[in-house]
Each structure stands twice: as structure tokens, then as C-alpha cells.
Computed example of a mutant assay.
Amino acid sequence: MKAVKLVFGLICLAILASNIWAMSRWSEARGVYDDICYLRQAHLFQRFGAGGLDTNALRDDDRYFEGKMKEIAFSEWKDPAQWPCHNPMQGGKLVLQYPPGTGFLLALFPEGHQVVPLYIAASLIVCGLALSGIVLARTPWSVVGAGVFGALAVYLMVNPAKASYSVAPTMAVCAVAGFLTAVWLSRDKRSVLMIALIGLLLGASVNFRLPNALLAAGYFLFLGIPFLWTRSLATFVQGLAFGAGVLVGMVPTLAAQAINAGSALATTYGSADVVGPTFDLAVFGQYLRDMQFVLILLAVGATAWLLGARERHKRLAALVVAGNLAFNLGFFMTHPIFTPYYVVPITMLSLWTLSFAGLLQPAATREAASVGCEPASLEALPR
């Protein structure tokens, strides 16, 4: 089995090396409006520090964004009212529509060489967790499963993650949050600090993409519904800790919205981007023909499989994921716009959670194995 683990580990590393080689040749001027707007946010952070949260078009007094517009031959580069990714707010100012997280991460790297290091750093995190899963696998089938999923996760850091700079850090956060969720559920006593950390990570992911706020839905359902039934103080504290973590993680976005839109709860997106739910067969059909549909099938299939597992922590992980998948897929399948990455975050968070839930053993099981006995029933173990 060690040889199989080594083979899959080398496959993941080979894909990582191939990705890094491909990334090293990427251009930051590929003509995509979103790219240039994220780079403008990064430029503002590098110029003004925390003051870069203010994305008013008037702050382009050094003509940075104008220069980027000219590079891609944008005809209205002189007129801020025509700039892409900018929307008018009260008082007539024009601001970036995106939350500040992606720009902040890009600002950590030197101008002109920001995108490639961001993607490499995110890929290293994903690959590290993929290798960890392979190491944790204890049976031949689990080694194969962890190896195939790890290779897929590393590959996805190029396609479809390249479609938007916000996807790369989101993928890394989903991998870490999925691992921590599995660890949290495998403990006999679930740590309040750990669920707060999971909430913090998911809240921080909102700073990359606002729809990432939906990634926390399944956790709120998992913690909220049992509290309504039992009125348990422990469940209430865990739910409160998770909610507080999510809120703290979102602080940069809330601050940016307060500065740019006049209220922490006001969006900087235009009316064309804020639309009510509707069901469009054409949009649904696009998902069926896209790689995202494969990820959806994998996530749904793995959830159904673990719902029938003997181990309690696996069933609990499947319950968290089931609620999260239902909520998120329900939203995006009724969203009248399709992109190649919309449901990738929720499917990857789900698959990372389920993968590690299947690989980790609860503490009581490990103790029983260490003394050479197998408990007759995991349901009989103390909670």
C-alpha cells in the first residue's frame, strides 16, 4: 500500500509542477475586465494601505487604471463612467463592485508579478492537503479515492480556477475548511474554538466572492435545527461561535461596503447583477454540459454514500454537506447567469469535507484500535 501511496503522491506533485510551469507563463494583461479590476484593488492597497478599501474612481490620480484600459485597447478609457466593474453610488462616485479580499492578496506580491504567486501559493495549500489525505488513507480503496480526488483538486487550480482570480484563494480556503470540518466532527467533544475558526475561514472567503457567503448555510442549518429541537446550551454556544467567526471574517467586505456604498449592508454591485431567482432551462442545460456537473455528481454521490455509513462522524459530515449542497445548488441553478466556476466552491468544500471525514477516525475508535480491540458498536461509544 505504501507503493500505491507513493505513486499517487508523485502524480499530485507532477500535476502541481505542470500547473506551476503553465502558471509561470500566464500574462496579467489577457484582456479580461475582471482581472484588471482586481489588479486596481491591489494597486490601491499598495498605495494607501488599509485606505485602499476606498475604490472611488477619483483615486486613479496616477492613471494606473487608465493605463490598464489602454493596454487592452478599451475605447472609453478616459471616461470613468464607462469603466468596467465600476458602479455608480449615492453622491455620483464610481466604485469597484468586487469585495476587497482578492485585491488584498494580490497586493502582497510585487506589481507586475502578482497573479502567478497567488495561484502558486493557493495550489501549494491544495496540494499539501491532497498529500495529507493520501497519507491518512488506511485501506487500498481509500488510498485510490484520496489519490484520485487529490489529483483532481490540484488540476482544478488551473481549470476552471484560472477563469477568475477570486477562485484560486476560494479553493484553498474550501480545502482547509473542509479538513477542519471533518476534524471537528470526528472529535468526541466538538471544539467551540474549531467551529469558530471554520466560521472565520468561510467568512473570510466572502472577501473573495460575495456568493461565498452561501458556503456557511449548511453549517447554520446543522447547528440551528438541533437547537430548535433541544434548546441545548452547548449547541447554542457552538452556533454563536460559528456565526461570530463568519461575521469577523466578513469585516473587510462590510467595511468596504460602508466606505463605498454608504452602508455595511449595501452592495456595490449594480442593479443588473442583483436579480431575483428564476428557473431557466438554458442555464440548467449549461451546467449539465460543464465539468461542474461531474463535481456535482461526485459530491451528491459521496454524500449519499456517507449518509449510510456506520461511523457517526461520517453521517454528521454528510448531513452538513447535504444541507449546504441543497441550499447552494438551489441558488445557483435558479440564477439566470452561468459561469464555469459558480458551483465549484460548494462542490469542492463538500468533497474535501467528505473525503477527510472518510479518512479520519474518531478518538474513541483510535483508542480501541491501539489496545487491539474493536468496539461492538460505534453508537455505544460515549459522546
Rank of each mutant, 00 (worst) to 15 (best):
S232F: 13
A73I: 03
F227Q: 02
A50W: 15
C373W: 07
L180V: 12
V116K: 02
G239I: 08
L233P: 08
V176M: 09
I11H: 13
L298D: 10
I259T: 07
I195W: 10
P211N: 04
M250Y: 13
A264I: 03
L316I: 10
L254D: 03
G243E: 07
R47T: 14
D273W: 12
E111H: 01
L307Q: 09
E71D: 12
A376D: 05
I72L: 09
I198N: 10
L233A: 07
L381D: 03
L215V: 12
F104D: 00
N87R: 03
A302N: 04
A163T: 15
I225R: 04
A368W: 15
F236C: 00
S350D: 07
K314I: 08
L295D: 07
C85M: 10
L96C: 08
M171N: 07
L215R: 00
A107L: 05
I125M: 03
H113A: 06
P169E: 05
N19S: 08
V321E: 10
A317F: 15
G112D: 01
L202H: 13
D54N: 15
H113C: 01
G49Y: 14
H113L: 05
T267W: 10
G308N: 06
L193K: 11
P88Q: 09
T170H: 04
V283E: 08
I346A: 08
E28M: 02
A130I: 04
A302F: 15
N19Y: 14
P160F: 15
W26F: 14
W305S: 05
F338E: 12
C37Y: 09
A216P: 02
G218R: 07
Y341E: 09
L53A: 04
R190S: 13
L16S: 09
M89R: 10
R209P: 06
G245W: 09
L306V: 04
K162N: 13
A146M: 13
K162Y: 15
L233K: 12
A318D: 06
A318P: 06
T230C: 05
A380W: 14
L329V: 15
N328A: 07
D79W: 09
A121Y: 08
R383L: 07
A57P: 14
A309D: 09
A376P: 05
E66T: 05
Q90D: 12
V135S: 04
R30G: 03
S166F: 09
V237A: 11
S232A: 03
H43V: 07
P382D: 05
P336H: 11
Y33D: 08
Q46I: 03
P99R: 01
L58D: 14
T181I: 10
S205Y: 09
K314G: 01
Q90E: 15
S24Q: 06
